[in-house]
Design a protein around this nucleic acid. Structure first.
Lengths: 200, 200
DNA sequence: AGTGAACCGGACCCACGGTCCGCATCTTAC
DNA sequence: GTAAGATGCGGACCGTGGGTCCGGTTCACT
C-alpha cells in the first residue's frame, strides 16, 4: 500500500487555508494585495504549512478555483442539456459560454487571481485546456465552421476575467446585460455563413 | 517661459534606456526575466536615472510601446483606406484588427510585457481605450450591430498578446494562418444578421 | 569662469515568494 | 498506555527585484 492516509491535522489545516484564502480574496480589491503571509495568518497556520500543502501561490489558487469549478465541470461533463454532452451543438455552445461567464461573475476575485498569478499566461493552466478542447469539440460538429480551434480561443477570450472585471467591476455593467451581449456575440458566430465575399 | 528645454545628457540617456530595454525584451524569453537593473546596466546608466525618466516599470514599457505603435496609430488616424478613417466600415474593421494583430506579431515581447506589467489588467491602459473607442465608432456605423461596445471588446480580446504568444510562440501557428483565422472570425461577426431564433 | 539647478549613479530599503530545520503532534506497533 | 518513528508544523531566514535617496557631477546660462 503506497497510499498513506494523511494526518488529520493536515486535512484540517488545508481546509482552513482554503477558507481563509477564499475569504481574503473576496474581501480585498486586488488579488495582488493578498500575500501568502496574510493567508497563513488568517488561517492560523505558519507559512511553511501553506507552501507544503499547495506548493506555491499558483497551486493554492488553482486548488481553490478547481474546488469552486467542480459543480460546473460536472454539469458540463455529465449533466443534462443544454450544458451536458447530449445537447445539440448549436444550443450547447452558448450554454457553455454562459456557464463559464456566470462562473466568472460569481467568482470574480478567484478568476482574476488565477489569471494574474498564472506565471505568465492563463493559456498554460490545465483548466483552460479543458474548456478549450470541450468547446472546440462542440464547434467541430457545427457545419460551416472551419477553424474551430481558433474560434474556441476567440470565444473564450471574450469571457476573460479581467475583461469581466473591467465591464462589471469598473463600468458597472449589469450582470444580465453582459450575459446578453455575450449571447448575442456567440449567436453571430454560430449563425450559418453567408456566401463568401458578400460585403458591401 | 515655464518650458525648460531638457538637458542633453538626459535625452541621450533616455534614448539609451529605450534602446537597451527593447533589445533585452526582444532577446529574452519572458519579459519578467528582464529586471530594471538589467536594463540600467545594459544602457550604461544607474537605476535612479531609469526611474526618474520613466517613473516606474510600467511607464518605461508604455513609452517603448507607444514609440513602436506610433506609425500604426498614424495610419489609423490619418492614413489612407482601408486603415484610415475614409474606409467604409465593413472594410475598416478587419483592417484595424489585422493591423493590430500584425503589430502584436511583430512586437510580441513588448505587447506581452505591457499586458503582464500593467498592474492588473490591460484595460486600464490608455492605448487600449483608444483602440476600443476607434473600433466601437466604426462598428456603430454597421447596420444590424446593436452592442458595438461589447463587440469591440470581444474582437480586441481575440488579439490579446498572451493568446498570440500561445498560438504562435508555443503552438507554432504560422503568422499568415493566424491572420486568416482572425479575418474569418471577424467576417463572421460582420456578416448581416439572420432572423432571430434561427437555431436548430 | 562661476553659479545654481538638473541630473547621475549605485548603495540602500522594503515587501514578498519561497525554503529550512528544530520541535510538536499524530499514527502505529506492542 | 506507551514508546518509537514518521509526518507535519511554524516562523525565522533568504534571495530577488521594484523603488528611493542623497552626495557628487555635469550641464545651461551669464
Amino acid at each position: 500500500m503506497p497510499e498513506r492516509r494523511p494526518r488529520k491535522d493536515a486535512v484540517r489545516n488545508r481546509a482552513a487555508v482554503l477558507a481563509a484564502a477564499d475569504s481574503l480574496f473576496a474581501r480585498c480589491e486586488s488579488p495582488e494585495a493578498v500575500t501568502m503571509a496574510d493567508i497563513a495568518a488568517a488561517a492560523g497556520v505558519g507559512k511553511g504549512t501553506l507552501f507544503r500543502a499547495f506548493g506555491d501561490r499558483t497551486g493554492l489558487i488553482q486548488a481553490l478555483y478547481a474546488e469552486r469549478l467542480e459543480p460546473v465541470r460536472n454539469a458540463v461533463e455529465a449533466g443534462p442539456p443544454p450544458l451536458g454532452p447530449a445537447a445539440p451543438p448549436l444550443e450547447r455552445v452558448p450554454a457553455l459560454l454562459d456557464a463559464l461567464l456566470c462562473f466568472k461573475l460569481d467568482n470574480r476575485h478567484l478568476a482574476l487571481a488565477l489569471e494574474e498569478t498564472g506565471s505568465g499566461s492563463p493559456y498554460q493552466a490545465e483548466h483552460y485546456e479543458r474548456w478549450h478542447s470541450t468547446l472546440q469539440a462542440v464547434l467541430e460538429r457545427i457545419p460551416g465552421l472551419t477553424d474551430s480551434a481558433f474560434t474556441a480561443h476567440a470565444l473564450l477570450a471574450a469571457t476573460r476575467a479581467d475583461l469581466v472585471e473591467h465591464l462589471v467591476g469598473h463600468q458597472h455593467m449589469p450582470r444580465e446585460q453582459l450575459r446578453a451581449h455575450l449571447a448575442a456575440f456567440t449567436a453571430r458566430i454560430l449563425q450559418p455563413r453567408a456566401a463568401t465575399g458578400a460585403v458591401g
